[in-house]
Simulated scan of single mutants.
Amino acid sequence: MDKVRMARQFTEAIPHAKALGMQFTDIGDGTAEMRMPYDERFVGDPETRVIHGGAVYALLDTTCGAAVISHPANPGATATIGLRIDYMRAATPGQAIRTRATCYHLTRTVAFVRAEALDDDDENPVATATGTFTVEGVK
């Protein structure tokens, strides 16, 4: 099975990804882009109508995992070791969140990933992420 298809199938099988409405917009060799539509159920502050940071975190984590799985040198699945999220600003109410992640380095047991979350304001990220993920024995 090719890596891109494997990453897509793995991610689409995750129940919380379905519940949050996550969708792939692009996936390639060690890269992934996803989108989560705005939904009132995911609002963290009823006054401002801003999406909860936990939903943004989940989208970034899922996108990063897909980037690791789709990397041509990764022989299998992955799990998050650590993920640091820096929230830069509140997401704009009513706008979808889009993420893009790149798996930029693999060792025999660890993958390193960078990602960002954006809404319609591509100039200023909502959040950025750096993470480490498990790898099953790169050869």
Rank of each mutant, 00 (worst) to 15 (best):
K3Q: 12
K3E: 13
K3M: 05
V4R: 13
M6Q: 13
A7W: 02
R8K: 14
Q9C: 00
F10C: 03
T11C: 09
E12T: 05
P15V: 03
A17Q: 03
L20A: 13
L20F: 08
G21L: 04
G21Y: 05
M22L: 14
F24A: 03
G30D: 11
A32F: 02
M34P: 14
P37M: 00
P37A: 01
P37I: 00
P37T: 06
Y38T: 08
E40P: 14
F42P: 02
V43C: 11
V43I: 15
P46I: 03
E47R: 10
I51Y: 04
H52N: 15
G54C: 06
G54Y: 05
Y57D: 07
T62S: 14
T63E: 08
G65N: 11
A67G: 10
V68C: 04
V68D: 13
V68G: 09
H71L: 11
P72I: 07
P72D: 03
A73Q: 15
G76V: 06
T78C: 10
T78Q: 13
T78W: 08
T78Y: 07
T78K: 03
T80F: 03
G82Q: 15
L83Q: 12
A91V: 04
T92D: 12
G94L: 04
Q95C: 10
A96L: 02
R98I: 07
R98L: 09
T99W: 02
R100S: 15
A101L: 12
T102S: 05
C103N: 14
C103M: 07
H105F: 09
H105S: 11
T109C: 00
T109F: 02
A111D: 15
A111C: 12
V113H: 04
E116W: 01
L118E: 06
L118R: 09
D119E: 09
D120P: 08
D122I: 02
N124W: 01
P125W: 00
T128A: 01
G131A: 03
G131L: 03
T132R: 10
F133V: 04
V135T: 13
E136D: 15
E136T: 05
V138Q: 10
